[in-house]
Computed example of a mutant assay.
Amino acid sequence: MSSAKASVEEAGSQRLDKWLWAARFFKTRPLAVEAINGGKVHLDGQRAKPGRSVRPGTRLSIHKGQLEWQIEVKALSKQRRPASEAALLFEEDEQSRLKRQELVQERRAAGPSLRVEGGRPTKRDRRRLSELTGK
């Protein structure tokens, strides 16, 4: 049996925070817990707690920044695996995928946004300012 099939379970249940981490929606489990507690993750249309059980067939709504995923859990994983294997753990709704891709395209078309950075200017910034002012 391949390692991908060995680490993916078809039945049983798993904690929501651990599944979100294994499916690579969040980089760490504490980040997943923070998102769940902040109301960014809904399980079957309702807010959930990090310890809530997830089973294949469960529907999740995940909000990260401006992006939103509407997914159905297809399988569980005991551990975090490569992204190609993590993609097998869920299936995204077609409408959700199209909406998310459209939003990403709009952001790319808008170009880089101006960031206002606080604090002191860096050495490079000071040199550029000196060149502009001639001092």
Rank of each mutant, 00 (worst) to 15 (best):
R55N: 11
L89Q: 00
R15S: 04
H63G: 02
L31Q: 05
S53M: 06
L31V: 03
L31C: 01
R126G: 13
P56N: 04
R128I: 13
L88A: 11
R115Q: 15
L88I: 07
E94P: 05
E10D: 02
A4M: 09
T122V: 03
R115I: 15
H63R: 11
G111D: 06
T28W: 12
K18L: 15
P121E: 07
S130N: 11
L132H: 00
R97W: 08
I71C: 08
P56Q: 04
A86W: 00
R59E: 12
G57R: 01
K123A: 08
E91S: 07
I71K: 07
G119N: 08
E72N: 01
R81W: 02
P82K: 04
K74R: 12
K64F: 10
L88D: 08
H63Q: 10
E68K: 14
S77Q: 03
S96P: 01
R81G: 06
D125I: 12
E131K: 05
S77M: 04
L103D: 00
L20G: 05
G118W: 10
R115P: 05
S84F: 05
P50H: 02
L76R: 00
A86T: 00
A32F: 02
P112A: 14
L67P: 04
R55H: 13
V8C: 03
K5T: 10
S53D: 10
Q70P: 08
Q70H: 15
K5E: 13
K64T: 13
L129Y: 08
R128S: 15
K135R: 14
R126Q: 13
R24L: 10
S7R: 13
G39M: 12
L132Q: 01
L129A: 14
A23G: 06
G39R: 11
K99N: 08
A109S: 15
S53K: 06
R80Q: 09
E94Y: 08
W21V: 00
E9K: 11
R47D: 09
R128A: 14
G38L: 07
A86S: 05
L20M: 12
R100P: 00
E91Q: 11
A48M: 10
K78W: 14
A4T: 08
Q79V: 05
K5Q: 12
R29W: 14
P112F: 09
K27I: 07
Q105P: 02
L67D: 15
A109H: 13
H42N: 12
H42T: 13
Q79R: 05
W69V: 04
N37S: 06
Q66Y: 06
F25Y: 11
H63E: 09
R55T: 12
R128T: 15
G65D: 13
T28Y: 08
L88M: 14
V116P: 06
R115N: 14
G134K: 02
K27Q: 06
P56L: 02
H42Y: 12
Q70C: 12
H42F: 14
A11V: 12
E10V: 01
Q70N: 14
T122Q: 02
T122G: 04
S53V: 04
R47A: 10
R124N: 06
V33N: 06
S61G: 15
R97T: 11
G111E: 01
A32P: 05
G38W: 05
L103T: 03
S3K: 10
A22T: 00
L98V: 13
Q46I: 05
E131P: 01
K99A: 15
R15V: 07
